[in-house]
């Protein structure tokens, strides 16, 4: 098969994951979608490695795997903590970082 067809599959998977991140409000679904995206990125690496017949693509996939594993463990721990603190998993309500400063207050005379 042509190399671009593999990369096209990776791109499709990646964009599907992205859609998931963007449309879902539940934190768990967002994390799942992120996993999909990471997996797609790994697929692209492996495809590239196969294209050149080099081991580097697969080595990179290993690193992505390790990264995904730690990301998921920390992320899920955060999800649990958030659920305990806020009793919700809705990301639209977890917006404590919102810029609440009123611009009029700091206006220079």
């Amino acid at each position: 098969m042509a190399s671009y067809s593999v990369l096209a599959v990776a791109a499709i998977l990646f964009t599907l994951g992205l859609i998931g991140v963007l449309t879902r409000r539940n934190v768990i679904f967002i994390l799942i979608s992120v996993e999909v995206m990471l997996n797609a990125a790994g697929l692209a690496f492996v495809a590239a490695g196969a294209r050149w017949g080099q081991p580097d693509g697969q080595v990179m996939f290993l690193f992505i795997l390790a990264m995904a594993a730690s990301e998921v463990s920390v992320g899920l721990a955060l999800v649990m903590q958030v659920y305990h603190q806020h009793k919700t998993l809705d990301v639209t309500r977890l917006n404590v970082l919102k810029d609440d400063i009123d611009i009029q207050e700091i206006k220079v005379q």
């Binding site: 919102k98 400063i101 611009i103 206006k107 220079v108």
Partner: peptide
């Protein structure tokens, strides 16, 4: 004052929602 205006405009984007940032 220009930067204050711009700040006013762009701080709308700082809504604390991850999705907006993405």
């Amino acid at each position: 004052s220009l930067f204050q205006r711009l700040n006013g405009i762009f701080s709308v984007s700082q809504d604390g929602s991850v999705r907006t940032y993405v």
